[in-house]
Amino acid sequence: MAKIKVATVSLAGCFGCHMSFLDIDERLIALLEVAEFDRSPLTDIEHCGPCDVGLIEGGVCNAENVHVLREFRKNCKTLVAVGACAINGGLPAMRNQFALEECLLEAYRDGIGVENPHIPNDPELPLLLDKVHPIHEIVKVDYFLPGCPPSADVFWTFLSALLAGREPSLPYELVHYD
């Protein structure tokens, strides 16, 4: 039987959801018997090819996030918003209370200990969006795994159901927003 293809990415994330995913510990070995990874911070694959499942960590905070998210949506049959940031912007969205310019000036010009103060302007760098957004405001999302981060059991419960062809659901004990 062909293996299920899984892609993962961190947009405006902290990699904590990926760490929590790895917290499934030795169950990862069982997972790798039936699944293989496409583009992911855990592989060297640069672009997302056709996949069964895409796990998205992090909200959308810059132009590159938008491109990557669209690439995932185009290639993944099932797209999953993983963690508080992907679901509601998360703590990074607390910057939505401030003008983007204020944030940049504070970080690159006025902040304590800043040397050679100027706002980075190399065209290589993706421009920040004026606000941080949850991913469902950019693309259609099929499932949501809440938590900051979701626990390893959330990943396991979800993936087990999906791999077995059952409709995934999370019992009370596994639903947390914090």
């Binding site: 918003a81 679901i87 509601n88 912007g89 969205a93 939505n96 209370q97 606000k131 957004h133 949850p134 469902h136 405001e137 999302v141 499932y143 949501f144 795994l145 809440p146 659901s169 999370l170 009370y172 639903v175 947390h176 927003y177």
Partner: peptide, 21 residues
């Protein structure tokens, strides 16, 4: 509020965010 949301098995926020200020 969170307790009710857990009770209702609310997994996402569905609507676009207002980001109140």
């Amino acid at each position: 509020l969170q307790g009710v949301a857990y009770h209702l098995n609310m997994l996402d926020n569905h609507f676009p965010h207002f980001y109140a200020d």
